[in-house]
């Protein structure tokens, strides 16, 4: 009973992950992007907890708690602080209009369900359905990086990709060894800190957080 119940729960959470990914992509305000990002972290932690409970793997509980603290709280807070200090909590200007983005996201999701099929048929794990969703979330994260102008949203996109990889890891392997997970967690934390530093540097150098501005400035340097 535990197996199928856990499976139901994980599948439910996977669906929520996908929903959150879509929501991230659809947001127009940086602060709400951060809210949804935090929610994604929480969902990830919940998934880890449930898989830990379902497979009786105690190490995974620690991993779940770390995820909750790091991805559900610390990272969003770091980004939120950066946004506040840089006063960029205005609306996001998307590069592409959001309807087109959503349609593309839909196509990408279908595509990932299609490509994951052979893997799903081979896998004997309880969480095999989540593979497709993890792939979809990953591609959606990349899509977010492509379609947004602000450096901060691109970083959120990057972290969302990382979240989906983590989700895929939990789904596909019932959790990585704790040591690996701690390592990855610290990497992400440090990456976030470095990104934060970069925001300030970019801001002071180019007077803007928009990547296009950097491009413009570099081109002018080239021509000069």
């Amino acid at each position: 009973m535990t197996g199928s119940f856990t499976l139901q729960l994980v599948n439910g959470l996977a669906a929520l992950m996908l929903l959150v990914s879509f929501a991230l992509l659809a947001q127009h305000r940086i602060l709400s992007v951060l809210h949804w990002f935090a929610l994604q972290g929480v969902l990830l932690a919940a998934t880890a907890g449930i898989v830990a409970w379902g497979t009786d793997n105690h190490e995974l509980y620690i991993s779940a708690i770390m995820t909750l603290l790091l991805k559900g709280a610390l990272l969003p807070w770091l980004l939120w602080r950066a946004v506040m200090q840089l006063h960029v909590h205005r609306e996001i200007e998307p590069l592409m209009n959001s309807t087109v983005t959503m349609l593309m996201a839909l196509a990408v999701t279908l595509f990932s369900f299609h490509i994951v099929q052979p893997i799903e048929q081979m896998s004997a794990l309880i969480t095999r359905n989540s593979m497709a969703i993890a792939t979809a979330c990953m591609l959606l994260g990349m899509l977010m990086m492509i379609t947004r102008k602000k450096a901060i949203t691109q970083v959120v996109g990057f972290l969302a990709v990382e979240n989906s990889l983590f989700f895929a890891a939990i789904g596909a392997t019932n959790g990585m060894p704790l040591v690996v997970e701690i390592g990855v967690a610290f990497d992400v934390l440090i990456a976030a800190l470095i990104f934060g530093l970069f925001f300030f540097q970019i801001r002071t150098t180019f007077d803007s957080l928009e990547v296009d501005a950097m491009q413009q400035s570099l081109r002018e340097d080239d021509e000069a």
Binding site: M142, L143, M145, I146, T147, V211, D212, M214, Q215
Partner: peptide, 11 residues
């Protein structure tokens, strides 16, 4: 071209 285009190509 822009960073977005590069990301797009990667994607």
């Amino acid at each position: 071209s822009s960073i977005h285009a590069w990301l797009g190509w990667t994607f």
